[in-house]
Amino acid sequence: MAGHEEPSTTRRRPSAVRRRPRSTLRSLVEEHLGSTTKFLLVGGIVFLLDAAMYNLLVFWHPAHGWGEGLMHGSPLPAKVLTIAAASCLTYLGNRLWTFGDRPRPDTSRSILLFVLINVIASGLQLSCLGFSRYVLGLDSVLADNISGTLIGQAVSTSFRYVTYGRFVFPRR
């Protein structure tokens, strides 16, 4: 039927991007900003302890001072030790403070998931250090701290933040 137009309807086309109401967006930001800030503070303190412990093990010798430490030839086992110590402190800080407002899940399940996530995150961090040491051949204090501590920590912390809130300390 040429020239025949359908009457207009009051239906709107679905928008490709739906906007959240301002109050919902504000509450979302407030909710995540608090936990993110707490997570980063806990992580920052533990990061400093991890870096200090690693540098003492790898680059400080009790008899000779700074240079080659007791574990200079074994940087990955040294990093495993410091990550293990840091992980215990991270669990306590996040359980008691960052996610302290969430219900306490079954402790054995929570700890098992925490350990599993930390093993994966540790693998990410160790691969950064291992790549620098064994592929690039860099073994200085600066190279180890950039690859294993800064880059490795940034990668593993991002992974931890997403997975802790979702699996270890869930809302429900």
Rank of each mutant, 00 (worst) to 15 (best):
M1D: 15
H4P: 07
P7A: 06
T9L: 03
T9R: 14
R11H: 08
S15V: 01
A16P: 04
V17N: 09
R18E: 14
R19L: 11
P21C: 11
T24G: 10
R26G: 10
S27A: 11
L28Q: 10
V29D: 10
E30S: 13
E31Q: 14
G34N: 07
T36K: 02
K38L: 12
K38M: 12
F39P: 00
L40E: 09
L41W: 06
V42C: 06
G43H: 03
G44N: 02
G44R: 05
G44C: 04
I45Y: 01
V46S: 00
V46W: 00
F47P: 00
L48A: 12
L48C: 06
L49W: 07
D50L: 05
D50A: 08
A51N: 07
A52Y: 08
M53D: 07
Y54R: 00
N55H: 11
L57Q: 09
H61V: 13
G67D: 12
G67F: 03
E68V: 10
E68A: 14
G69L: 08
H72T: 15
G73F: 05
L76T: 11
V80D: 00
A84N: 11
C88H: 11
L89M: 15
Y91H: 15
R95E: 15
L96R: 12
W97S: 08
G100H: 12
D101T: 12
P103W: 12
P103C: 03
P103V: 10
R104G: 10
P105A: 06
S108H: 12
V115Y: 13
L116C: 04
I117H: 02
A121C: 10
S122E: 06
Q125E: 07
Q125T: 11
Q125S: 15
S127K: 07
S127G: 08
C128G: 01
L129T: 00
Y134P: 05
Y134F: 08
G137Q: 03
S140D: 06
S140R: 03
D144L: 02
D144A: 09
N145Y: 03
N145H: 04
S147Y: 01
S147N: 05
L150M: 07
I151V: 13
I151P: 00
G152M: 04
G152W: 03
G152Q: 03
A154R: 02
V155T: 05
V155A: 06
S156Q: 03
T157H: 00
F159N: 01
Y161I: 02
Y161V: 02
T163Y: 04
Y164N: 09
Y164E: 01
G165Q: 06
F167K: 01
V168N: 02
V168H: 05
F169D: 08
R171P: 03
R172M: 00
